[in-house]
Nucleic acid binder design. Structure first.
Length: 742
DNA sequence: AGCACGCCGACT
DNA sequence: GTCGGCGTGCTC
């Protein structure tokens, strides 16, 4: 049943403007098309009087547009892409005595101007055009929609990531003119790679090459990226570079300034203020700046005539957005490269399984150096395994094997020495030092943990203290336990090498660079300072801890972090040495010794294929109460080749600073299924999940609380009885490409 | 989410 | 008759 408020003057041939106010609702035969009009009888735009608006209201509407009438006075500014404010809500149609009540003002974007609407009813008018700046052009909208589809998320959620909040002062400033394109660069150190010069040449001549680039260790990568950008600019196109954090962003920024001069590129990072951020973004959108380097939010930067997208170090978890629908920079840039037919460059010292897959599928070409180039650039890597440690009683007590000791002492004669220590709290699980049997609670067999505060042993499941643990398998009573933090390692090393300054770099305080003079630099992974002239040596401690995590990516991640540290060390030709304390038979350790991250990734990839694991198969996780989950699955029309794994109980909300999205709210029991589809069915899976979710929302199921950020929780649980409790219980969380599997 | 509509029981 | 609680459905 439709409830049209058709006025008496309805359906005639009168001009769209100057329509009388609608009074009481009069039911009439359906009129095929609604005429735009405004409530107070104000005039509407003559041509294209309907504005199709994307209302920015989260998960509610999924991907629907709403039509509004364009008042005459807004005709000129109400162009596609501009931000608007509109009345939205049930109250908006409460028409009595010509007064509209309720229906608050909310933000939206005009997506399109049309001659008529297919909505059968009177249109409300745009309340306000916030600014004439067309921030959401067709390209960006298309990309946002593709990302929403890929991740089974809502368009509005993606737009929140893609369009920064407006800042009026920034908008008022002129952005200036785009400078003339620079000359094409010399290949420089790109010559070290088989097809490096060729790749640059293709970019400079307007081509769209796609490459997975395994960067040689050392500091040249930033300049190499800058040269690729310059080559793209030389072709008259724009370029976009996304790096994981502010530090590498600063390096690429410096390299671009060096190569292109000031003012030819924008730096888009999270720590800039809103005004600066929006100003830079606008300069990019307006075409005044053609090159962008930034962290993950920059992946949506509206670069004009995009010719190249670059992602550096795609294995870094910072590339995964932490807002719904959790898009990953690599995936978004892949979409951009495909949609805009532009070049694509994925660079890393290491290699993810996903990168290997891009090469294997033929989507991108490998961009690698010859073996002798690798040997010339990489340090010498030596291992200290369990066997060596066992034979090395004295060193064991000091946690520093003889070989490592010697490498440090030797290195310190020639320059700074890096010591990489896993972060505290990076502990996998406690195990018997002698036989490696995991340490379990004698009551419930849960994993034993060391209490944060006291270090005392307790059970991670039942919480009981364990005062006198001994190994059930071999009777040993020593645990291989906590990773010693960077600070304590620094103290120990300071005592061992009293004449040498010791510096630490970690989460709280990250050092950017250290001088080339002899010093011990103790750092957690990812926080390693760059040393002037490179480190003379590096020591990678507690490798077992890095590998011990119950995660599909543990091996790949460990190798990435080791290579990240080892890449800061001088080449072996000038004495650069790395000592890693880890079992030399383990695959990632061997890959480090051989400096073969690609081989490692390729092997992982084939194993994942055999096991039907991502990224070969695509997975999605759906979580909620048992009831909501079964209801969702019953209603979903999954692709025929989908396999549903589970449900299994969701791990209790982890006690920690950030509650993981998809974890059960406190006091609720949630379950999770993983849904897996074979290669080629990923899009169908996402579509079916989105459809099922939309259908559920349309019926009573209330939106997922906190879908827009992990924070918000329960609401008015239990207060108003079944309705609200039922609504919360109905909600399910959907995450395509969940991170924590394995 | 909000909000209005409408159905049904209770009461001046 | 009419008031108001709450279940249902819509938002241009």
């Amino acid at each position: 049943m439709s409830r049209e408020n058709q006025g008496p003057d309805e359906g005639g041939a009168e001009a769209p403007e100057q329509l009388a106010l609608i009074r009481e609702s009069v039911r009439k035969a359906k009129v095929p098309r609604a005429k735009p009009r405004t409530w107070r009888g104000a005039a509407v735009a003559g041509a294209l009087p309907v504005a199709r608006v994307l209302v920015d209201k989260g998960v509610l509407h999924l991907d629907r547009y709403f039509d509004y009438a364009v008042p005459e006075e807004l005709d000129a500014v109400a162009q596609p892409g501009v931000r608007v404010r509109v009345r939205f809500g049930a109250g908006a149609r409460n028409v009595r005595d010509g007064r509209r009540e309720g229906g608050g003002l909310i933000d939206g974007f005009i997506v399109e101007r049309c001659a008529e609407s297919d909505y059968q009813g009177p249109l409300a008018a745009l309340a306000q055009v916030v600014s004439p700046e067309p921030v959401l052009d067709e390209r960006l909208l298309g990309l946002a929609r593709a990302v929403a589809d890929r991740y089974a998320g809502s368009l509005a959620d993606v737009l929140q990531l893609a369009v920064p909040p407006r800042h009026a002062r920034a908008e008022a400033r002129e952005s200036g003119e785009a400078p003339a394109p620079p000359d094409a660069p010399e290949p420089g150190s790109w010559r070290r790679y088989g097809h490096g010069a060729e790749f640059l040449g293709a970019l400079a001549s307007g081509g769209a090459p796609r490459a997975v680039w395994t960067a040689l260790p050392g500091p040249e990568w930033a300049e190499e990226i800058a040269r690729a950008v310059q080559a793209t600019l030389a072709s008259g196109r724009g370029a976009l570079v996304v790096v994981p954090t502010g530090r590498p962003a600063a390096r690429v920024d410096a390299a671009l300034t060096e190569l292109l001069g000031e003012g030819r590129h924008a730096l888009l990072t999270a720590d800039a203020g809103q005004e600066k951020r929006y100003g830079e973004w606008l300069a990019v959108r307006r075409g005044a700046v053609r090159a962008v380097v930034g962290t993950r939010a920059a992946m949506f930067a509206p670069v004009r005539d995009l010719g190249l997208v670059v992602i550096w170090d795609d294995g870094d978890s910072s590339h995964s957005d932490d807002h719904a629908p959790f898009p990953h920079v690599r995936e978004v840039l892949e979409l951009r490269a495909s949609r805009d037919k532009c070049g694509f460059l994925l660079g890393s010292w290491s290699c993810t399984v996903e990168a290997a897959q891009l090469v294997e599928s033929g989507w991108a070409a490998p961009l690698v150096a010859e073996r002798d180039q690798v040997r010339a650039a990489a340090p010498l890597v030596r291992t200290v395994g369990d066997g060596d440690l066992a034979r090395d009683e004295a060193a064991r007590a000091a946690r520093l094997p003889t070989l490592a000791w010697r490498a440090v002492r030797e290195g310190l004669k020639h320059g700074p020495v890096l010591v990489q220590v896993p972060r505290r709290g990076y502990v996998p699980r406690l195990a018997c030092e002698r036989c490696r049997e995991p340490a379990r609670c004698r009551h419930c067999a849960g994993p034993l943990e060391a209490r944060e505060s006291t270090g005392a042993l307790c059970c991670g499941w039942c919480g009981r203290d364990e005062a006198a643990w001994h190994c059930g398998a071999c009777g040993g009573f020593r645990l291989r336990a906590q990773v010693v933090g960077a600070r304590r390692t620094a103290e120990e090393l300071g005592r061992a090498f009293p004449a040498v300054p010791v510096r630490t770099s970690g989460r709280e305080q990250v050092l950017d660079t250290v001088p080339g003079a002899p010093a011990l630099v103790v750092s957690t992974p990812g926080a390693e300072p760059v040393a002037e002239g490179g480190y003379a040596a590096a020591l990678l401690l507690d490798g077992w801890a890095m590998l011990g995590r119950p995660d599909l990516r543990a091996g790949e991640d460990a190798l990435r972090r080791w290579i990240g540290a080892a890449s800061l060390v001088r080449p072996q030709g000038v004495g650069g040495t790395v000592v890693i304390v880890a079992e030399p038979t383990l695959r990632p350790v061997q890959a480090l010794v051989r400096w073969d991250p690609v081989g490692h990734a390729v092997r992982e990839l084939s194993e994942r294929a055999e096991l039907s694991f991502p990224p070969v198969s695509r997975m999605a996780a759906v979580s909620g109460t048992a009831e909501a989950l079964s209801g969702f699955l019953a209603g979903a029309e999954l692709p025929p080749d989908a396999v549903v794994l589970g449900p299994v109980p969701v791990a209790e909300t982890t006690p920690g600073p950030s509650r993981r999205p998809g974890a059960a709210p406190p006091g609720e029991h949630w379950e999770r299924v993983l849904i897996r589809v074979p290669p080629g069915s990923g899009a169908a899976l996402a579509a079916s999940l989105k459809t099922a979710q939309a259908a559920r929302m349309a019926r009573g199921a209330r939106g997922v609380k906190g879908a827009r950020g992990a924070g918000s929780s329960g609401g008015a649980r239990g207060s108003k009885g079944a309705r609200e409790a039922g609504a919360a219980a109905d909600a399910v969380w959907i995450r395509v490409d969940p991170l924590d599997i394995g």
